[in-house]
């Protein structure tokens, strides 16, 4: 791990408190700030048109854009179906994920309207989108050079997979 202060490996005593599972819990997403945000750019990392961006920057920008797009889908669904507000709150995570990828604590929503699908399919479609996002984050994790970026992408992928599971469970 890249120089972050980590808890020492757990000492195994005769009885170890199960909470010890958290020994390697997030050291704080603040540690991610300042990572390769282009100078003077809008909130997130953007693909480098000159094609000279480091591969990790490309991955970061790609994942960032995908997370914001997913956040927009939830925004559109919520606007169309206010009664689903509670179940759709699971999508709030995508702005946090985009922010973490951007190294920015307060990302600005990207403009642009997204049309919500029909009510009876909106949860199923968002669930599929979450599953796809989990696959995308996994693929990006595999390609990341920076261990901290790989860990972030793995965590975001876990969050997307969990959101897919929650949406799947709430459909019935």
């Amino acid at each position: 791990m890249s120089g972050k202060a980590r808890t020492a490996p757990p000492v195994v005593t005769r009885r170890t408190v199960l909470v010890g599972l958290g020994v390697a819990a997030l050291p704080g997403l603040a540690g991610l700030s300042g990572c390769s945000t282009p100078d003077g750019a809008a909130p997130g990392p953007t693909p480098d048109p000159s094609g000279t961006a480091a591969p990790d920057d490309v991955l970061r920008a790609e994942a960032y854009g995908q997370e914001l797009a997913l956040a927009e889908r939830y925004t559109a669904a919520r606007a169309s179906y206010p009664k689903l507000r509670e179940v759709l709150a699971v999508g709030d995570r995508h702005r946090l994920y985009a922010a973490a990828l951007a190294g920015d604590a307060s990302p600005t929503a990207s403009p642009g309207a997204t049309r919500a699908p029909a009510k009876r399919t909106v949860l199923a479609e968002l669930g599929r989108a979450e599953s796809e996002a989990a696959e995308q984050r996994l693929a990006q994790c595999r390609r990341a050079a920076d261990p901290e970026l790989a860990r972030l992408l793995a965590l975001i992928g876990a969050g997307c997979a969990a959101a897919a599971a929650q949406l799947g469970g709430s459909r019935g």
């Binding site: 958290g22 390697a24 819990a25 997030l26 997403l29 699971v90 709030d92 995570r93 946090l96 965590l155 876990a158 969050g159 997979a161 969990a162 959101a163 897919a164 599971a165 929650q166 469970g169």
Partner: peptide, 18 residues
């Protein structure tokens, strides 16, 4: 993360944070 959600009914935003 999927199993955690199945047990609790709620998808954690950042797994392992709590």
């Amino acid at each position: 993360a999927v199993r955690a959600t199945t047990w609790t009914g709620t998808a954690a935003v950042w797994s392992g944070e709590a």
